[in-house]
Design a protein around this nucleic acid. Structure first.
Lengths: 336, 336
DNA sequence: CTGAAAGCGCTTACAG
DNA sequence: CTGAAAGCGCTTACAG
């Protein structure tokens, strides 16, 4: 019946036998080739090729106490990050940066309380050497749990309330907002509103702060909160038109919300930018798919992801902590 | 200096000592509790809680020869899948279905030839018990490589040329296309074109086949190929208008391409559906964000992902092979 | 430079 | 039901 059971996977012992050396020598060749004679090394290389040997990662991890893997943990109660176009860029960037270094990316979600417990146990089981944390909201309770396990963590975006404890990489939200609002003012717009992100996200608070930096304490009526979704952008725009009929510019804190705002303005019979200017944030695909194309703030998520990986790998072992703030840039198109 | 080195992680030995039993008994409690007295079991549970013990996954895997992880491999030379909205739904579905079973998802990409070698080695290193394969194009050379390692594989979508070798889960593309084209015909449209996906993808060939099922060997001029991108949809629509000025309906094989087609028609001064009808495929968010909203074919990617996970877990150990074809459904909106 | 040996933390027959 | 022991496949001081 089971006459052709799959051939046993070759072990280091097999390689050693073929090469005519000891297991220890094979291991040394595999781990940098120090203290190995050229002859022995060559024999081992040959034997590895002949046997098709591949190291058993579990056996190695058991002794080295390292897994050569890192976790990419999505901590978002709504799972909304999966729909965020920026999330994709981040995930893609991290996956590739890690693959280049032969490090495995383990993806996991921790939305519910129960998930968080599972992830805590899982991380402790030795699966990973460090954690890349992406969370939509502030004060993710996961941070405390992970910290208590002593694992290196790097967050995407400023981890509100934990800036001192863990490393993070963020785009300069506040300065980006300043650039946009200054731009609107320099174009001659006078009544400048803002549609913010959720106030428990760094993008929500920091972009609003940048707006205030330029305009000072502006009229509260000019500030409406959205949740980064297109629908919320439309609703917020309608609210602004109701509150301030003569509004002539709006800084919308994400391109996706700006799309919603654009649609709402169209329905209200307003022309952009003749009647009202719209500035976005992200410089995503949405910014160039709309009519008119959006003036927006570029943040480079590919760069964020490579910096996150670099920071994490640096901190594994050394336990250093740092924050990297990447510049943002105004991109002028047709909506302002 | 290093006075407060992190407390050593508790091992099974520690638990055994606290509980006053042997290591073997602790292990038995952990692995189902068979052949353990209630008293011993209770003592072990208590000791686990007291010590905060968590199993070392590497040690366990070393002896069980299983990793309790599966790989999610993206095999796409262009990395375009990261931009595909369907990809996100698939990834999210798989992540959650696996998390529920306490199985880890390892994400990796294998776009280039070199990547493929890396992934081959990596898979062999014992990292995973099975593979979920998502690839944009036919004849992914990775399939052969993975097959030779004897790992269970489940593909998303029909793996052209490998249908007999590996399991897969796919939506019924061909029948969906038939439903759409029949619908267009029943609405009275007579000159029905098609904008297909790439002809080396199952969605590219099978949807075109469904179109032919209904219309027979139609005029070649009515067939234009796209690449699923919005831009290609626009270009293809312009080409169709040039070739067949009196065309009155088009089945566009993805919602995203349909968005492009819609924009091209708007530029050409054609009204939808008065002058020309447009049918999409996917029932993605794009279908309801457009004006008019798209008549389209729904395929349920969440369901695809749960079926993929089920199939994979079933086949680990048993080595069974199967294909699951999920029904597609016509969703009528305003564009036809 | 090299080999013999200990040890990483588990699971699982085997005896009892 | 339980313990003692072998063994999973590696790495790494230690002696030489």
């Amino acid at each position: 019946m089971t006459e052709s059971s799959p051939p046993r996977r070759p072990t280091m012992e097999d390689v050693a036998e073929v090469a005519g050396v000891s297991r220890g020598t094979v291991s040394r060749v595999l781990n940098g080739g120090h203290y190995v004679s050229p002859d022995a090394s060559a024999a081992v290389q040959r034997a590895i090729r002949k046997t098709g040997y591949v190291v058993n990662q579990h056996a190695r991890s058991l002794v080295t106490q390292r897994s050569d893997s890192v976790a990419f943990i999505l901590s978002d109660p709504q799972d909304r990050l999966f729909e965020d176009p920026n999330f994709n860029i981040l995930l893609k960037g991290c996956t590739q940066a890690l693959a280049e270094r032969d490090i495995t990316l383990l993806l996991t979600v921790a939305g519910t309380q129960e998930d968080r417990k599972r992830v805590g146990r899982w991380v402790t089981a030795g699966h990973v050497d460090g954690v890349l944390l992406v969370s939509e909201h502030a004060g993710s309770p996961l941070i405390g749990e992970l910290r208590s396990r002593g694992l290196p963590i790097v967050a995407a975006g400023r981890p509100i309330g934990h800036e001192r404890e863990i490393s993070y990489v963020a785009a300069d939200d506040r300065d980006g907002a300043r650039q946009m609002v200054s731009h609107l003012r320099s174009r001659g717009y006078r009544t400048i509103g803002i549609i913010t992100g959720p106030v428990d996200t760094p993008g929500g608070v920091d972009r609003l702060a940048g707006y205030h930096d330029v305009l000072g304490r502006s009229d509260k009526k000019l500030i409406v909160h959205g949740d980064y979704s297109q629908a919320s952008g439309a609703a917020a725009m309608e609210e602004l038109l109701r509150r301030v009929p003569d509004i002539d510019a709006v800084f919308v804190c994400s391109d996706l919300m700006a799309l919603g705002a654009l649609a709402a303005l169209q329905r209200a019979g307003k022309r952009v930018p003749e009647d009202i200017a719209i500035g976005g944030f992200d410089d995503s695909k949405a910014a160039v798919s709309s009519t008119p194309q959006l003036t927006t703030i570029r943040q480079d998520f590919t760069r964020v992801s490579t910096e996150m990986v670099r920071l994490l790998l640096d901190s594994i072992g050394t336990d250093t902590r740092s924050a990297v703030i990447l510049p943002t840039e105004l991109v002028i198109r047709d909506s302002t």
